[in-house]
Design a binder for these strands. Structure first.
Lengths: 251, 251
DNA sequence: CCGTTCTGAGAGCAATGCTCTCTTAGGAGA
DNA sequence: TCTCCTAAGAGAGCATTGCTCTCAGAACGG
């Protein structure tokens, strides 16, 4: 009932095993089903209570199960959180992807703006989940590598925009920055896997702009702007437009 | 034994009542003393375990008290956290202040760079505390207004630098940004209380730069830069130098 | 000196994460 | 179809947490 084709998906795939739906045995199917149900309930708890309010026992209760049964699916609370984080990264990543795809490929500035607003909109719609991804790491919890690779998905979109703009020759960054430090060359090379062909200087700017985007959203979402910004949407839009110019995108 | 004169203070003042030391009655003195001891222990717990690992009972245990006694000093765990947050803001604020004060007043760029490095250094030295301040708000916890006013302290330093630079005529922002939205005028006026005389356009840039600073530190501290930046200090320095140029500070 | 207030102790409640053991149901091979 | 083995849920239990009571003693102000 979850794999109806055109249906609205309230759940997000997190487990490897889930991706190959209608798997062999009935037991495996119901296991996948239950796993998904657990993450769904957990996600709704996360949305209402925040990461700290996520309780395995409450999830079990809501499922009509006994708490110990949950441990057949997630060996610990942290593993559940990890699954939610991976889901979250995929969700923002998807939001970024479709926002980007909705713009003509050569409208680099428009793609960047759409990307930014997609992130902010998603963050406002899922504040606790956003906090889980881009806020402080959850107490006593160390992000496993799974989450890191999931986190890259959104960054890929960004990288493509920058790379496309550079490739099209429409990237004319203002000449205001000092040269990047020598130690940055290697980093830039690594980042270039995500935004090919882009010179070091632009890579550096791209990082600044990218962190600036999330820095702004964090401030807005985590209350640092309280009593300061009256029209957050407009201010945000202006901010990312400026960032675009700093990066070298056309107005 | 705690108020030895020349002693090294590991504790930070949080309560109003603490500031006027050697208060009237002995009872009040010991109360202030114990309050401070509680926050000290709590802070060290925070430093090692993170916000989630902060336990009232553990604090009580370490003090040789029974847990319920703590509630005579802090009505709830959240209130303890609030005190720690206020302390934290004051600590970063102080770090910013002294970094700023160590530079000649007319070296605006140097003051900005010193400010940035002071924040980063403090963040690296107290990651959990920093996360409490600039990361996601703690689960189920809503920042009271006390913390907001405390948060301003560091921002004041920043405002003074921008304002000084502008007043000295050494602020020449590159003309790359679109005009700020109409709705921003009122916000700018409010921000101008912190950085007087500064025109709207510069206020907008100042906000972008400020959020960018914390955005970068967040990425670095919360692991978003994992496997990306090899020499974080150098990259950070370059980033804030670029930000300075974007703001209009001389190179 | 006496009554008020403040403070710590102690027990207790509800809730949490997690670990056991036990029983039952599902599935694979004969 | 029968037989085993494994997986899954139930249930009890442990240590821990935040927080609320009540109670006794100490400090304080008059």
């Amino acid at each position: 009932m979850f794999v109806k084709s055109g249906a609205l998906f309230s759940s997000r795939c997190s487990d490897m095993v889930l991706s190959m739906s209608s798997s062999r045995t009935a037991r495996e199917r119901v296991r996948a089903e239950l796993t998904r149900e657990i993450t769904d309930i957990a996600r709704s708890q996360l949305a209402t209570e925040g990461a700290g309010g996520l309780s395995l026992r409450a999830v079990a209760r809501e499922m009509g199960m006994v708490s110990s049964a949950i441990y057949r699916y997630f060996p610990s609370r942290d593993d559940l959180l990890t699954a939610l984080i991976v889901d979250g990264y995929n969700a923002v990543g998807e939001a970024m992807e479709s926002a980007d795809a909705a713009r003509p490929r050569e409208d680099h500035t428009g793609r960047w703006l759409a990307l930014c607003h997609a992130v902010r909109d998603w963050a406002l719609a899922h504040p606790h989940e956003y906090a889980l991804l881009y806020g402080s790491p959850v107490p006593g919890y160390q992000a496993p590598d799974d989450t890191i690779v999931a986190a890259v998905r959104g960054t890929l979109v960004y990288g493509r925009i920058v790379s496309d703009a550079h490739g099209a020759g429409s990237l004319t960054p203002p000449d205001i920055c000092p040269p990047s430090p020598a130690s940055f060359a290697e980093d830039a090379a690594r980042v270039r896997e995500i935004m090919p062909e882009v010179p070091d200087d632009v890579v550096a700017r791209a990082l600044i702009v990218w962190t600036g985007l999330f820095g702004w959203i964090n401030f807005e979402l985590f209350g640092q702007f309280k009593n300061t910004i009256l029209d957050p949407a407009a201010a945000f839009d202006h901010s990312v437009r400026c960032q675009a110019r700093f990066l070298g995108l056309p107005a």
